[in-house]
Design a protein around this nucleic acid. Sequence first.
DNA 1: ATAGGGTTAG
Length: 454
Amino acid sequence: MIYSLSTRLLNICIASLCKIQKLDRAEAVIIDAIRLGYIPDVVTYNTLISAYSRFVGVDEAYSVLHRMREAGIKPDVITYNSLIAGASRNCQPSRSLDLFEEMHHNGILPDTWSYNTLMHCFFKVGQPEEAYKIFCDMELRNITPCVTTYNTIINGLCKTGNAIKALRLFRDLKRQGFAPSIVTYNTLIDGLCKSRKSRLAGGVLRELGKSGCTRDLKTCTTVMKCCFRSGNFDRGFEIFSDMRKEGCAFDSFVYCTVISALAKLGKIKEAYERMEEMMKDGVRLDMVCYNTFINVYCKQGEMSLAHQLLNEVQGCGLQSDEYTHAILIHGFCKLGDIDSAMAHLERRPAESNLVASNCLIYGLFKVGRADFALKLFNELSIKDGFTYTIMLHGLCKCGRYLAAFDILMTCLSNRVKISSSAKRAVCIGLRESGFRKEERKLRSAIRLARLLVS
DNA sequence: ATAGGGTTAG
């Protein structure tokens, strides 16, 4: 009784240290506690292993497993599930599978959680077939799937570009008596919105209203974001103010969604107000928040404020990411300060940041350095619809309509998505400079592409 | 111990 009480105390202490990410300290406490006669148990170590795998890395978490064994405590299914979750977070499916094997080897049977996590990992790295195999294995071994299992599959399908299949699965499951949770609805609505199936998403949203589930903050964020994405800004802001009326406590997701929308519309003053409000609410700022703020400053052309914030980020132990750099480079390009943009890009490999490269191409055209833009374009090993759209606009701007024509024809035959304004610019340019034959060819190619796509 | 929402380029 005394032992179990002290173990529980120890576990509470370890859990709080893990929560504030003082992991070295937590382990030191365990060692001291043992010396003082406390007896750690599997929960003590599982807490630590879970925290290491979440905040540090799987290797570090795995080394705790060794020390756990040395202390005479046997790992259980939760120990391994934490490690598998860590490997999954790092997109290491083979590592997850190894852990799965090792678990089997040690006589620990994987449970629903283990399988769910493993499936999630395969979806995350874009291997839905492998995830499906895991699901079959699960059935074979009589491990009963749960709501999370299906939510993982629905999410996985959405994230691998199969939102319609996800919806079909959802319908099938419901027919079989599956009770969706709010997570199921949120996942599906978000997936459909991102695949530009907002009408279907609206249908699922109405279905949620009729179900026994209650919508939550994530539902609202998802729907609001969906409105902004489809250009329905008024409706998006309306959802935000409705949430406020209902007395919702906003988190960083809500604020970042709204602030970005305001920044996109150039409503900088309102963006600042929301930023202030966010700070007043005491929302903890992560890298996404800082990126959102830096973007607001960049939109305003306040590059020194943007940089100041970047320095602040490094001061609080956060790591700037590819978003940060793309935002800053775009900021410089908008101002026509191509040198600063280049200098910034040089510190980061261009190949690994397609958005930044796209911005730079845009910036080069903007200052009239079309040949340099073409050189950069040709050097890119990966290009996307944005790259081509920016190129087309740039080439039209400096009157190189035939070059634009060639690129656009290639895009059409390769089904690369090009903005309609870029297509229009090329057609008009060709016509006005007398390239009638090319214009005709292009227009019929555009018509044909439209027919084939839909 | 697993699943869902937020940040960049035309």
